[in-house]
Design a protein around this nucleic acid. Structure first.
Length: 582
RNA sequence: GCCCCGGUAGCUCAGGGGAUAGAGCGACGGCCUCCUAAGCCGUAGGUCCCAGGUUCGAAUCCUGGUCGGGGCACCA
């Protein structure tokens, strides 16, 4: 409908241009929007205001001329000039009512769009290091990434959801060391657990598992690992040293065994957690496999061949400043180890080699400094940097009422996603995470998310869905049967103001999906669903649906069923369940 | 110092060139002999952080401040 009106205006402008003999000059952008106020009809355009300057005529005059030249459109009841020169379009009641067969006809496909034109799109999100359980910050990335993926899919993109598993780096070695040390504690050895190793409680069960599997086979005095390390040196260097010694002490095979156990256990926990959260991936992409396959080396060779690398201070540097970064970056460290950035280049180049036309990464806001260098790497390989899109998600802070929930990273203890889900439930967690603009810092109030009252917007929306389901049960109990043909033949009976408002809201859904997908803003769907539920509740309170008059009753039931469908479709996008009763 | 994000009602936030700035919560007042009151209706509540600028028109764009969060590794 919106598009039809845009076309109508374009046609009118073309006709005016032809009549006046002037060639179609470059026109400013003309927008057609939903009118905010009922009095302004259904849609409004600023065309006349935007053209006033170029045509050197009064806006209202231009508006009149446009209206006079509009092609006839049976969906429009009237078109009028208002305010400083807006053109307001009023749809006929029939045009609104026609939404009902449209929705019921395509059901779960209502709202689908070809906006994305089947573009192969890779959405990478969460990608937390498999060195510990997911915390509430990851939860936001998970909810946002999953919802965005759904949204893009519904809007016609060919979406692949991917988790990049950082299972190759130093962090994994630290985890391995940490597990082994906790294991040694279980073996009864006493020592001071080093700074910088993972102190979280979650390491202990992994160590216990190791003990259960190997008994005392890995039980070696760790004193040699700690001996003679300079107390003044930074903890990182000492830790690297300890890792090296532990590896030597255990031998590559046993070290690898602990490494594998830790990875399997913790990554398994992460997969489990996300899956329970309704976050599903098409692909888990291992950094380790990327390294093993030689693709990182191949990538470095390619950058070397294109002259983008140079050697300085014993390290190999990528000249990212040549492609817009603020400083050059190391890809191979002085000690010969490749940096995380090296495999990250290979991974991101690979996304396009794998045939994706667009790569979308969801990152925490603290990674923003990383964008320029990845983009530089793509540019160096003559890939379109614009095809790589990074969406930053700001931090989340937990509150219990007005009380801030403290998270201590020092002790390694933090509120995990699993704890959050257990406390507030998956539906409320998904909704709360995604209801805020991603660039807004999120204050997550546990009390509000948990409340089973009208305070909670999740229940408010779900309740509208459950109410329609309840209505259908009532219908049956009262001995009625829904007669769809009769309903569709009597839609003109939906003449109440609240019914019109509800119909307008139903008609907005496809526009909301497209706008939200275009802007990568899932929160628009949340706000829309709140509005839709409100329109329904208002209607429900104002007018009895299961009335005696069959044609009116069937028409109203059809409206309720259409509403239920759209709520279910919208909730599916944000990953929240649509209950049949509450 | 440089870079990114934010500042809108008591609180949490939408709106991001266009018509009297919106919602939820909180406050106050109404509505269940009637399809779920997890609902509906109403009232009160605003220096859209500040100062300049662009524009017919600025909460919205630009510049400079200011306050808050984050980032500036041969860590990931």
């Amino acid at each position: 409908m919106k598009r039809q009106i845009q076309n109508d205006i374009a046609a009118a402008l073309a006709r005016i241009a032809a009549d006046s003999g002037s060639s179609a000059t470059a026109l400013p952008e003309i927008t057609v929007e939903r009118a905010r106020d009922d009095q302004h009809g259904d849609y409004a355009s600023n065309a006349a205001l935007a053209l006033a300057r170029a045509l050197r005529r009064k806006p209202r005059e231009i508006a009149e001329a446009i209206i006079a030249s509009l092609p006839s459109n049976p969906n429009l009841a009237r078109v009028e000039v208002a305010g400083p020169g807006f053109i307001n379009f009023f749809l006929t009641p029939a045009a609104h009512q026609a939404l009902i067969p449209a929705i019921l006809g395509v059901a779960e496909n209502y709202g689908r769009s070809d906006l994305g034109a089947g573009r192969r799109t890779l959405v990478e999100f969460v990608s937390a290091n498999p060195t510990g359980p997911l915390h509430i910050g990851h939860g936001r990335g998970a909810a946002y990434g999953a919802t965005l993926s759904n949204l893009l899919a519904v809007a016609g993109h060919d979406v692949t959801r991917e988790y990049y598993v950082n299972d190759a780096g130093r962090q994994m070695d630290i985890l391995t060391l940490s597990i082994w040390l906790r294991y040694l504690e279980l073996c009864g050895r006493g020592f001071v657990f080093p700074d910088g190793a993972y102190r979280g409680e979650y390491v202990r069960p992994v160590a216990a598992k190791l003990f259960a599997e190997v008994a005392h086979e890995f039980d070696l005095d760790p004193a040699a690992c700690f001996a003679g390390l300079p107390a003044a040196a930074d903890a990182d260097a000492n830790l690297d040293n300890m890792i090296g010694r532990a590896r030597a002490r255990l031998g590559a095979q046993r070290f690898e065994r602990v490494w594998r156990l830790g990875l399997d256990d913790i990554l398994g926990d992460i997969r489990d957690d996300l899956s329970q959260f309704g976050v599903h991936y098409d692909n888990w992409y291992s950094e380790h496999s990327l390294t093993q396959s030689g693709r990182v080396d191949a990538c470095i060779a390619r950058l070397e061949a294109s002259g983008d690398l140079y050697r300085k201070d014993g390290a190999l540097w990528f000249r990212s400043t040549a492609h817009g970064d603020e400083k050059d970056r190391v890809v191979v460290r002085e000690n010969g180890q490749r940096t995380y950035f090296a495999s990250d280049i290979a991974y991101h180049l690979g996304k396009f080699e794998r045939g994706f036309e667009r790569a979308i990464d969801v990152w925490g806001a603290d990674h923003h400094g990383y964008i320029a260098r990845v983009r530089a790497a793509l540019a160096a390989q003559k890939l379109d940097p614009a095809a790589f899109e990074v969406l930053l998600v700001q931090f989340a802070t937990l509150y219990r009422g007005s009380e801030r929930v403290q998270m201590s990273t020092r002790s390694g203890e933090f509120v995990t996603l699993r704890e959050l889900r257990n406390e507030v439930g998956n539906d409320a967690a998904r909704f709360f995470y995604v209801t805020r603009r991603p660039e807004q810092h999120l204050d997550f109030d546990l009390e509000l998310a948990k409340s089973h009252t009208s305070d909670n917007p999740v229940y408010y929306i779900q309740y509208a869905h459950a109410r329609v389901c309840s209505l259908m049960r009532q219908l049956k109990e009262k001995g009625f049967v829904f007669d769809q043909p009769q309903a569709l033949a009597n839609l003109e009976r939906l003449a109440e103001e609240q019914e019109r408002t509800l119909l307008v809201s139903l008609g907005r859904y496809p526009e909301v999906i497209e706008d939200a997908a275009r802007a990568r803003e899932p929160h628009q769907v949340c706000f829309y669903l709140r509005d839709l539920a409100h329109a329904f509740h208002t209607c429900y309170n104002a007018h009895q649906i299961l009335v005696a008059d069959p044609s009116l009753r069937n028409a109203r039931v059809a409206l309720a069923l259409g509403t239920r469908q759209v709520i279910a479709n919208g909730l599916a996008v944000i990953g929240v369940s649509a209950p049949e009763s509450m």
